[in-house]
Amino acid sequence: MSDQLSRTATHWRRTRNLTFVTLGIWFFFAFLIHWFGAELNNYSFLGFPLGFYMAAQGSPIAFVILLYLSTRRQEKIDDECGVAE
């Protein structure tokens, strides 16, 4: 029983850490870079002003990749802690 308790405790600690990291990256692409949109627009990327690019494509692409990677990581944590379905 105590073994299972420690397993779920480890699982939750790792899940929580992963969530914090995910949300940190999310915060960067959701808010931080758009705050500096005007500055970023001085640079050019693929022919786009960079600020415009990040809002139109960069952030959404980052979200898709972030979700994919964090979901894979979460599945690994579930498996390693033996709490997967």
Partner: peptide, 10 residues
């Protein structure tokens, strides 16, 4: 566009 995609991370 940013808001309606990033919401799925939450």
């Amino acid at each position: 566009i940013v808001g309606w995609t990033g919401g799925y991370v939450l």
